[in-house]
Write a protein that binds this DNA or RNA. Structure first.
Lengths: 361, 361
DNA sequence: CCGGGCTGGTAATTCGTATAACCCGGCCCC
DNA sequence: GGGGCCGGGTTATACGAATTACCAGCCCGG
């Protein structure tokens, strides 16, 4: 009764006994090992016995012998919890499964002790690699222990440059957003940011840089008064939108550096009686699926390609330890909805264009 | 080079050699095995060597011997992806970790083949049990293979009654929601449901039943015209709210059977120029964290206790295979915000109450 | 009649850990 | 002075699967 493994289920020995062959034969037959020959009769008996007894291979025994496990560790700070980032896990898991691997996930909630302990456990399970994921894009310090195993940093960058990283291409995203508004004809384009542009938030810094580049490329001189720092939440959008639209020279379009900020902006514009996109055009960022498609009108925004990023993280892990520490950037595609239109013709305080259409109200 | 396990890291034998003792001694010392005696000197040497060499136990070898692994399987349909249900994983993981266990998670996305395959893999890893989770509360069929291992159904109920299940207490939730509105003084209380009440959606059926019970208990005769079936999304809320409020006898309060429906209702009411909670009071359901707290005004709603449910699922798994197939229901606490007030005094089309306050506009 | 090759399989070993069984020297006690 | 016992370890084995080396026939050619 105290014998370990007493409830371990059917083993190869049981199958061998039932089929009247040796354990080695069972192993070779079931694995269809190359370069071996067994009679059809024997194969049949083995398969029949295995099926009969409900044989299932003991993964631990296999790993112990082979030295490599069929699991990948996935540790994140709040990834499983973050409302929109579940996709990142989904992508990682999908790719892992294609390679026949399972994901060992831990959500540390920012607890460094838990993080360290779970990494230890993962390593003791001989995971084939570890994906170290962050809820939001930042520069972070990777635990040293990860040097012992293939590891990649996901949705962030490794400060030390030791590990390959995967992150969204923020600057291009900002550029795309601003360009979309420029292409629609806007010239006074505000941006409500989600953090300081001299801080450590690549999203805030990059998206702003892209916004500036687009403006300059279009020959529009950026007005500092049109760039405002929000908090990344509704209030940041609400307050800043209110301030912008009631200011001396209100913009005709606003680039909100994330969707929640955009939501706050919707609410502020509604309060002011301004319509989207007729009076003001809007572009968001994140394509938060519980939000962006459901706003009225639907929010045109940029999508964080979490699914692909998750996939790629595992892909890179599997591709061997290319210990190059390079960062791979993922483009954020523009998702068109209905929050962008041409600027209103009436508010044109700078009648620049000579051949202005004969405007009927 | 082809030797398996060549990169397997330090083993107990290495430690034993370094410390000048036998492998058994290392095992006994490191595990602090009861009933054994070793000199302090030996213990020190062993620990020193282990630390020196960076020894880490090989979990697979241990499991192989002991027969039971330190992992719990977690398979869900869309749980990892669903925006609000990440908490369910978080809770499960937290409880598992307290028991020193890791979660092996798979998100099947509804793919039955993937589900079967990953369950096989989990079982081959000798998981201590499996949590079978569903994105939304329903009655489902559990794969037979789960009978081989402790298993519990999470956020749904097992049709066969073989497995313990954990689900939210929908009826009480509906009752609480309606009672909150009754207590605020409302008598014409509508409900916009998220599905048919004769269907297989316990949330729709249960919440409606609770709503009815609260009304009847308060002596309010339910008006069938005030119960409407939506689709669970914004449009269901929008359309039905519009219909309700423009009907012959509009309600003074609406119970929306989920938060997204409530959001649609907000939008409809805004369009009609009605204010919440002054003109109409609202109660939602789900306490979706990306939505409910951010609406204006904040939505009073019922919270699905996912964190606790996740915890409890693992707890029940660990508590041994109480193969009782009973369902354990979790109460949904009311989360007060600002969408409920007393009914407007002016619209009282049924002057029932004799001592009506002298209403000033 | 002997050797070689082929067919169809088996015995033995390995992975890393836990643990039951055992062993040896010294001390105490009768 | 011998047996018991205790402190301080060691030896051996099992867990389940994969794999290498080997083995027993049998056939065929020279």
């Amino acid at each position: 009764m105290n014998r370990p493994g007493s409830r371990s289920g059917t083993t190869m020995n049981d199958v061998a006994a039932a089929a009247g062959v040796s354990q080695a034969t069972v192993s070779l037959v079931l694995n269809d090992a190359a370069g071996t020959r067994f009679s059809e009769e024997t194969r049949r008996k083995v398969h029949a016995a295995a099926h009969e007894l409900g044989y299932r291979t003991n993964a631990h025994a296999k790993v112990l012998r082979d030295g490599v496990a069929g699991m990948i560790g996935f540790v994140g700070d709040f990834v499983a919890t973050a409302p929109f980032a579940g996709k990142i896990i989904e992508g990682a898991q999908a790719r892992a499964w294609e390679a026949g691997l399972l994901l060992l996930t831990v959500n540390t909630g920012g607890d460094k002790a838990l993080e360290a302990a779970s990494l230890e456990t993962m390593l003791s399970y001989k995971v084939a690699g570890v994906v170290y994921a962050a809820m939001y894009h930042r520069v972070l310090d990777v635990p040293d222990v990860l040097a012992e195993v293939p590891a990649v940093v996901l949705n962030s960058r490794d400060r030390s440059g030791r590990f390959p990283s995967i992150a969204p291409e923020e600057e291009l995203g900002g550029y795309t957003a601003a360009k979309r508004l420029l292409d629609a004809g806007h010239r006074r384009i505000a941006m409500i940011n989600i953090g300081a542009v001299d801080g450590e938030l690549p999203a805030a810094v990059g998206r702003y840089a892209g916004y500036l580049r687009a403006l300059q490329e279009a020959g529009v001189h950026p007005d500092p008064a049109l760039h405002r720092i929000g908090d990344g939440h509704e209030w940041g959008g609400f307050d800043n939108a209110l301030a912008l639209m009631t200011g001396p020279q209100p913009p005709t379009a606003i680039f909100c550096a994330n969707d929640r900020t955009a939501w706050g902006t919707y609410q502020a514009l509604a309060q002011l009686g301004l319509s989207i996109p007729h009076d003001v055009s809007l572009v968001g960022f994140d394509n938060q699926e519980t939000l962006a498609p459901h706003l009225r009108p639907g929010l045109t925004t940029l999508e964080l390609p979490f699914l692909e990023m998750g996939r790629r993280a595992v892909e890179r892990l599997l591709g061997g330890a290319e210990r190059d520490g390079s960062t791979e950037y993922f483009e954020c595609p523009l998702v068109e909805r209905d929050s962008v239109a041409a600027p209103p013709k009436t508010t044109s305080s700078h009648p620049k264009s000579p051949n202005q259409r004969t405007g009927n109200a």
